[in-house]
Nucleic acid binder design. Structure first.
Lengths: 254, 254
DNA sequence: CGATATTTTGACCCGGCTCAACCCAAGTGG
DNA sequence: CCACTTGGGTTGAGCCGGGTCAAAATATCG
């Protein structure tokens, strides 16, 4: 947490907006909260922004705060002594970062895009959590969702080919992007890949070269179209799903 | 669930034992329950046994019961259309099988040893769950533990070599076995590997041939000793940890 | 004892890693 | 304005860890 903490006032807009108006109000940890409970959270929350690449928490470090992703993407990663790295979770807006009752983080959390978090201090959050079944219920739900996603990812990491890994990941992103705009994954203007090739490789258990080659492969096969390295369109979502090797639609958080 | 349901009375012993005397009383879902709450569970629980290889629930199937592993080991596995299989979790005694609120299972659950489960019907369990914060709290804890274990496994599946995978798995089993008898992982009489080579391969994202070769390799390197294919001793736990490639002790449930 | 799993071992091959070069866009400073 | 750097990204050549295929060796069990 040694980095710059200039709060970037202009693009954050209303730095301290009211919970009731929050974009993630109905998907985040506060989903089931009553107006009264929301007011309690409102009183103790604070926002914090991070630059791309900036570390949010380091593995083994004791964290004194936790909260929700409001904007941006956060990667949770584990590293072996010799530097091999595996990303074990990507956190999108409304996902909850930091674990109740576990003060020390078992992984790094790094901002992969500009990130804005809605945070609580650990002490305050746990006090409210104990008195608020609506929070606890939602926390359990979200944890179960993460567990499901983690297990889907275990199948991907353990058994899928490089091509299938890439296709699966792109299918998830395409579906996500389409869902946010109520479109089908095939027609929209495409979506932005918010990660570098390195971050993708870390997430999929591959190297950057293989990621690059497989993306090129999918492009040459006509399954995806690239405006540039980070902007992808999916002309045929079913073809992409097929390349992903899944039986049905690929599951994941959300 | 087409299989034999003969309850195997002799080796199950007291088929319906009192919760207070249960071997997993202080580790399972009921850990925090008061005597009164325990009595409620006691009234509605029932036991069921499964033979090795017997399917407990099939992926996509709607489950009408859920509960704790009392004896034996259960494997949770996912399968791709072409048959590639990945085990996403091993459930040992005290682990909870079946997810509250998710009626349909996203994976197969198969008994890999003789298994005895302490079960509740879904409807009854969820009713009690809603009225019993002690249960809900423990359920959240256990879910967080499973999530941690799943993420450790993602690192293993995505980034570890075959040798490291085997060493990691054996280290976990050795530590487990030692903990159950208050010994250090290096001195005990060794432990039994409760899985076939195929089940190990499914869990580690390998093939049975590679599993066999790497176990042989570790034996020839003097890191482990084999009485037979299923009985393993660890003369030097640190050497095993070293072969596992972890920085510290390999985490996992428990 | 044959019959059927499970495990081991061997020979070979290939998907994805390694190493290395190159491309391209965006700074940066003279 | 250009020379230089820097951080992504792509492409190529070669290699090797672990998969595949095949067969032998060992349990396990009627």
């Amino acid at each position: 947490m040694s980095g710059l903490q200039k709060m970037n006032l202009q693009d954050t807009g209303a730095l301290r907006e009211r919970c009731a108006d929050c974009t993630i109000r109905h998907r985040a940890i506060c989903t089931y909260c009553s107006p009264h409970e929301l007011a309690l959270l409102d009183a103790i929350k604070f926002y914090k922004t991070f630059e791309p690449g900036q570390e949010i928490v380091a593995a083994g470090e004791e964290t004194d705060f936790l909260g929700s992703v409001v904007d941006g993407v956060v990667a949770l990663s584990k590293t072996l002594i010799d530097g091999r790295r595996q990303t074990v979770g990507l956190m999108f807006p409304s996902d909850f970062v930091g674990r109740a009752k576990r003060p020390v983080a078992p992984y790094d959390a790094v901002a992969v895009t500009p990130v804005r978090l809605c945070l609580f201090t650990r002490a305050r959050f746990e006090r409210i959590l104990r008195q608020t079944p609506a929070l606890e219920k939602r926390l359990l739900e979200m944890t179960l969702d993460e567990l499901d996603a983690a297990r889907d990812w275990m199948l991907l990491l353990g058994r899928k080919t490089a091509r299938e890994k890439i296709a699966t990941f792109l299918a998830i992103l395409a579906r996500r992007a389409a869902a946010l705009e109520n479109e089908t994954p095939s027609d929209g203007p495409g979506f932005e890949l918010p990660l570098t090739r390195e971050a993708v490789a870390d997430y999929l258990g591959l190297t950057i070269e293989t990621v690059s080659r497989q993306i090129t492969g999918l492009r040459k096969a006509g399954v995806i179209e690239l405006a540039d390295a980070r902007n992808i369109r999916v002309p045929n979502y079913l073809a992409l799903l097929d390349a992903a090797g899944d039986d049905a639609d690929g599951g994941m958080i959300d």
